[in-house]
Amino acid sequence: METPVPTPARLLAALRTETTAGFLLLGAAVTGLILANSPWSDAYHRLAGADLGLTVSQWASDGLLAVFFFVAGLELKREFVAGDLRDPRRATLPMAAAVGGMIVPALLYTAIVLVAGGDGLSGWAVPVATDIAFALAVLGVIGRSLPPGLRLFLLTLAVVDDLLAIAVIAVFYTSSLHLVPLLLTVLPLAAFGFGTQRGVRAWWALLPLAAATWALMHESGVHATVAGVLLAFTVPVRGPALAERFEHWWRPVSAGIAVPVFAFFAAGVTVGGSFGTVLGDPVTIGIVVGLVLGKTIGITGATWLVQRFTRAELPRDVAWPDLLGLAMLGGIGFTVSLLIGELAFGAAPEPKVGVLGGSLIAAVSATVLLRARDRYYRKSQDVQDAVD
């Protein structure tokens, strides 16, 4: 007789799955949006603005989201050192797709805003990000018969996209730079790295060093979530393999607390009677066009160009219609797009409406195409099974 798995263990296991993470993210965002436009709107905004040293919403975006970037950083390092990104032949196409999927949305957004007069150019980076958790969750739900290579392609693309988006935040969205706390950041960061390289796993030894790194990074003017990535990059992938252990421990915190709480506050835009004006704003339109069309054109176009003029090839089991659906899926911006929107525009509703609307359109469009492809592969497998 099997021993029943304890409920907390089942919960933690569920929080490590992409599907659960995606649903929690979506549920939190929808809840925040509903509350912000309900009779409880004032209470919602008072909670978001409550002063706890930083406001509650700032703690969510600067503090809790650092946990998300820590987990993303661990995955990035693992992929580059010991995963698929280590092999240039397998990484070339999805890496090129990630770059194309960032350049084209930024260009489309910039063109739309410039034609409208140029107000809002600071938001050029809002549509460049792909939400790795949400995109993989959608693919996992709708594509059970799709080729395994498609998920690997999306994962690699999203990992590279995350790395580039982090660099964009650090370089372009640092309002003022204070050198002394920035230089002092090196001390706890180096101590954290030294401890992890020596195999230290005790939270009481590492957590204060991580907190000090975060606090100094925040004081320096660089967005504090960058500290999460830097801390992750110090964790060894080989040897004691702490990266895998830390990712296993912290992913439920990221998926179950950090990202949903951030989405709850970031998506809570009150539009009221101005909704039509917000929808027609060039910033909103630019973000939607960037996410829906820019990602599709950029990812597909860059992949085709690199495949056409180099020896790089699509995964053996992936066809071009599959890649087109994946490119549409890349238009789900959400977490990082909402963060960049806050950094560029503060609490303005336009970037939030643009990100939510564009991500929804991208998700629905990708679902329609990938569902059809999934049925095609399922029927092909049924025919093959009948022949066998």
Results as ranks from 00 to 15, higher is better:
M1S: 13
T7N: 13
A14Y: 03
L15N: 10
T17I: 10
E18Q: 09
G32M: 09
L33R: 04
L33G: 10
L52R: 07
L52Q: 11
T55G: 08
S57W: 05
D62W: 00
G63Q: 04
L74F: 02
L76W: 05
R78Y: 08
D87I: 12
P88E: 01
P94Y: 01
M95F: 00
M102C: 09
I103G: 11
Y109D: 09
A111F: 15
A111I: 15
V115T: 14
G117M: 11
G120W: 02
W124L: 10
A125W: 04
P127V: 09
A133K: 07
F134M: 14
I142N: 13
S145A: 14
L146N: 09
P147W: 12
P147H: 13
R151N: 14
L157S: 07
V160K: 11
A165M: 04
A165Y: 10
V168R: 12
A170L: 11
A170I: 08
T174D: 04
L183W: 01
T185G: 03
A190M: 15
G193F: 09
T196I: 12
P208H: 13
T213K: 04
T213P: 10
A215D: 02
L216W: 03
H218C: 01
H218V: 01
G221W: 06
V226K: 07
V229S: 04
L231D: 07
V237S: 10
V253T: 05
A255L: 08
P260W: 03
F262K: 06
A266I: 00
V269M: 00
G273C: 06
S274T: 15
F275K: 03
F275A: 12
L279S: 08
K295P: 13
K295C: 13
T303K: 03
Q307R: 12
Q307S: 14
L314E: 08
D317P: 04
D322M: 15
L323Q: 03
L329S: 02
G331N: 00
S337Y: 11
L339G: 12
G341E: 09
L343G: 15
F345N: 12
A347I: 11
A347C: 11
V353Y: 00
V355I: 01
A366V: 14
L369Q: 00
R375S: 14
R375Y: 08
Y376A: 15
Y377N: 10
D385F: 13
V387E: 06
